Amino acid sequence: MGKPSIPAHPEGATMKAVCFAKFGKDASALSVETIPKPSLETPDEVLIKVHAAALNPIDKYRVEGAMAMILPEAFDTSVLGYDVAGVIEQVGEEAGKSYNVGDPVYVRLNKPMKYGAVAEYAVSCTHEIAKKPAKLSFSEAASIPLAGVTALQALRRGGVTEGSKVFITGGAGGVGSLAIQIAKKMLNASHVCTTASPGVGTEICETAGADRVIDYRSQKFEEDLAGEDFDMVFDTTDEAGKMGSLLKKGGKIMSVAGTPSIQAVEQWIGNVPWFMRIFLFLGKNRAAEKAAAMNEGTWEYVLLNPNGKDLTEMATYLENGDIVPVIDTEAASIEDFKTAVDKLWSGRSKGKCVIKVVA
């Protein structure tokens, strides 16, 4: 039996969205389609007119089918994307106590999604959204939620506080460029070291506030930084297995790349089916655990918990310029989505790839 179609809007309203009906390896799997407009179903939901949506590596994995075991697609047609910035067009009865029609907001859409980010409209619960920082454009705001909250939660779980010494891989990437700024400006780390390519990548990291940048093309961080005693190392590039020599005694390695742990998936989706447990066990990052144990430390995989509280806290720092979005590519319209998709899929983007939905 096939999957159900996206349910019709009660009044028959439709919208444009970037969709995929089959898994594929590149942008050819995606197309702009006309699908039913989402509607409010619970009192705490809001309908957002999307002005901009951002892409993340998870979108690539989802289109390729790599996420299907953990998060199977609900419908026979799926909408791309998780990150949204836009204006509230309709509020549920409960949502109306906190938000009004016309409020600019930004959000990382959470499960269950109705139906994705790269569309003319999106629905979200109020506990996931936050008021958009007025200083930011909609494209800048859309670039923040998934990457920013992921970085904030990973750094906090890693114990980063005032005076901490932190190492972050992939400092010019979407998560890395925000992680540097969050570590320095929000959590008051005393020293942040990262990896990047020479040129633009290094410039992004230095502008973000990195105290030291390792050129990953000509240097091996596991050798150059051995014995540096970092309190926490943040793996955004699936290199946790190399990080043991960097860690101080009792320090922490936090990963957001590679195969997630069973514990992380349990926190994300609840009960993990037996077949998925087998898959996750076989893919377990034993090298990361071994690396952490070198200095009596710990390794943990972090899956983000989308919430408006963290976005609201970050908004203060975005508003005063302590945290600055880094955008690599901005597609001019929903029809031009391949400009952003192709850059993200290439693996060469610096910062975030964004699609403007409202010009």
Results as ranks from 00 to 15, higher is better:
K37G: 05
V272L: 09
S177R: 03
I182E: 07
L280C: 06
L109S: 11
W299C: 06
A183S: 05
P325A: 04
G173W: 06
A66K: 15
I204F: 04
M294G: 02
C125S: 14
I334K: 11
D328Q: 06
A134L: 12
A53C: 05
M254F: 05
Y61T: 09
G173R: 00
E296D: 14
I269V: 13
K248I: 09
G86Y: 03
A315C: 05
D103Y: 05
E64N: 13
D336V: 03
P43T: 02
K220V: 11
E73K: 15
E335K: 00
L311V: 05
S255V: 02
A288V: 05
L55S: 08
R348S: 13
R348E: 13
Q219A: 13
G116H: 08
L109M: 11
G199T: 02
Y121M: 06
A53R: 09
K114Y: 08
L152W: 07
I144S: 01
E120I: 04
K309C: 12
I144W: 04
N56F: 05
V213L: 11
L344A: 13
E266M: 11
V324H: 10
K37W: 03
M243T: 01
A142D: 01
A142P: 07
E319R: 03
G351I: 10
W345C: 01
D229K: 15
T34L: 10
V192M: 09
A66R: 14
N100K: 15
R217S: 06
P10I: 12
V357I: 15
G171H: 01
D342S: 06
L155D: 10
S39W: 14
N100D: 13
P43K: 04
V213G: 03
G2E: 14
I180F: 02
V326F: 09
A151T: 11
D26I: 04
N271E: 14
L55Q: 12
L80G: 12
S245N: 13
Q90G: 08
V84Y: 02
D238F: 07
E222T: 11
I204Q: 09
A117P: 00
R156H: 04
D224S: 13
M276C: 03
K132A: 00
I168K: 04
G241Q: 05
F20L: 06
V149T: 15
T316E: 15
E89D: 12
E313N: 12
E89H: 08
I144R: 05
K309R: 14
I48H: 06
G158D: 10
I88Y: 07
L344M: 15
M314T: 03
K284T: 07
A27C: 07
T236R: 08
A183P: 00
A288Y: 01
E33P: 00
S31G: 14
P72I: 09
V123F: 11
S333A: 13
I180S: 02
V87L: 00
V272W: 04
G199Y: 12
K97V: 00
I334C: 10
R157L: 14
A264K: 08
A287S: 15
A66H: 14
D336A: 11
K37T: 09
L303A: 08
V84M: 05
S28H: 13
S349D: 13
A196R: 03
A240T: 02
P38A: 05
